[in-house]
Structure formats: C-alpha cells, structure tokens
C-alpha cells in the first residue's frame, strides 16, 4: 500500500506546517528588527550608565543584535579598563 499512499500524497505531511514554522521565524526577526539610529542611542545610554561604575574602552565596544534561528539576543562586548571603587554617589 506504500506506493498507493505515495501516489495519493500520503508521503507528504502537508506544507502548512512548514509555512507555520517559517512564518514564526520571520516574525521573530521582524519584530526585533532595530534601526541603526535606535541602536546608536541604546549604545550611548548603556555607555553613560556603565561609565558611572567603571572605565570602559569606548572605542572597542561592540553592541549588536544576534539573530539565530529561533531567538534574537542583544550581545554586548564592552572591554573594562578599571572598576571605580567607592560609592556611586561619591563619583557623580
């Protein structure tokens, strides 16, 4: 009966599942898409906050959205030069 089943389309699970999976991934990416301007603003604000607590190497900062198949993550690589000791209040 295998050949019959194949003839009548039984070997095919239907394309809707594939459409569903592809749609979900496309939407994950679309919904987390960020404009370069927004990413720059985010980067500047993150630097401002971090600078209260530590000296950081602002030239070597990398902030990006990392897309893999099922998720999107904000990945930041920020080299620290020196942690500031003492209370935050003392510094500002």
């Amino acid at each position: 009966m295998g050949f019959l089943s194949k003839f009548f389309g039984g070997g095919n699970d239907g394309s809707s599942q594939k459409a569903k999976d592809r749609l979900k991934i496309v939407l994950i990416h679309d919904r987390t898409d960020i404009s370069p301007q927004l990413l720059d603003n985010l980067r500047d604000e993150i630097i401002d906050v971090l600078a209260k607590y530590m000296d950081i190497d602002t030239r070597k900062i990398e902030i990006n959205l990392d897309h893999d198949d099922n998720a999107v993550a904000l990945v930041a690589n920020i080299p620290i030069l020196r942690i500031r000791r003492g209370k935050v209040n003392d510094i500002t």
Binding site: G9, D13, G14, S15, S16, K20, L23, K24, L27
Partner: peptide
C-alpha cells in the same frame, strides 16, 4: 479543502502568531 489537507495555514495558525 487545503487547510484540511494540511496545505494551507489554518485560522488558528494565523491567530497564534
């Protein structure tokens, strides 16, 4: 017909996303 045959996104598939 196509939804029944698994070849078209169903109503609930679309509402899910």
């Amino acid at each position: 017909n196509m939804v029944q045959d698994g070849d078209m996104l169903a109503k609930d598939d679309i509402l899910d996303v």
